[in-house]
Design a protein around this nucleic acid. Sequence first.
DNA 1: TCATATT
Length: 389
Amino acid sequence: MAVRLCDVASLLRSGSWAPEPWTGQVIATMETQLSNGPTCNNTSNGPSTISNNCSSPVEGSIEDSKTNLIVNYLPQNMTQEELKSLFGSIGEIESCKLVRDKITGQSLGYGFVNYVDPKDAEKAINTLNGLRLQTKTIKVSYARPSSASIRDANLYVSGLPKTMTQKELEQLFSQYGRIITSRILVDQVTGVSRGVGFIRFDRRVEAEEAIKGLNCQKPPGATEPITVKFANNPSQKTSQALLSQLYQSPNRRYPGPLAQQAQRFRDLLVLILASVCVYSRFSPMAIDGVTSLAGINIPGHAGTGWCIFVYNLAPDADESILWQMFGPFGAVTNVKVIRDFNTNKCKGFGFVTMTNYDEAAVAIASLNGYRLGDRVLQVSFKTNKTHKA
DNA sequence: TCATATT
């Protein structure tokens, strides 16, 4: 176990793997970043843009909100509170909602954040768009005004030539309207196209026209016709998938080394508790995991999660850098940079709260000694410091 | 025969 953690840490230090600030490039997916401002340009730092049809007269309507954001590609286990905590680090939030399946309660992987100040919304796009959280790269953009006309505008396309690129797919469909997102599914091993993909239009009527115009048609140069239909609704999951999610233990979400490590820690706690019982001649009691350990002092454990102490931050460090560093390791519920009351500069340290012990342990092992700028960070579980002479 | 983008 320790060997693995050291390996991760050395990987980080050597620079061959590191959480780095977003540079504005998306490799796995190409999407159109909508601009809701009065001008239509491609200067926003969102994921790469292929097409941006600027000819629509309704685009850039003055009624478009400049405070309301849609956040896409959120990690499955991210809660509304974590979403609020993340975006609240930018500025005051008027409202925040994580969208969940009405029946199962499962996150649909996107949400909305409405700021009080439009400047904070802009800042959130600039600083949080492209942030890596666990296995996801979140997307932050202005929300379009909610309307029935923009719903159910997602198409499933199959029978595509394996050689067709995402750009060519967009070129084929862009004659029917403004494309919000496009994707071609690829074989996970070989990376070669599976010949199926998705096109999300701005409006449902555009999607309908694309079906009429392209379903059962051969793309230029293709030998076989493609199939174009409305994509399945996200709520349409198999009962088996639902069951497996419902009965999935939170401790068993990550099999392999991490789960083993977490189990060892629980085993250790049980051992400690057992020895406490023997020492104090208490009769044996039922032990039901770490939740029964209230009252025992565990370093860094604050009840709501595992508090991590981060030392040697620069004076201009902000919450965003803590999210960027710790987010990829798992569920982060809160970050805080400690600042001087008068200068508002960072006093050199901060705290990060993570939900799961195993993820926190890997984050600490990986980020302790991490070089941030010209500083070497010290990262550990927060301890309950007592005054010593 | 399908990744998850409109509360």
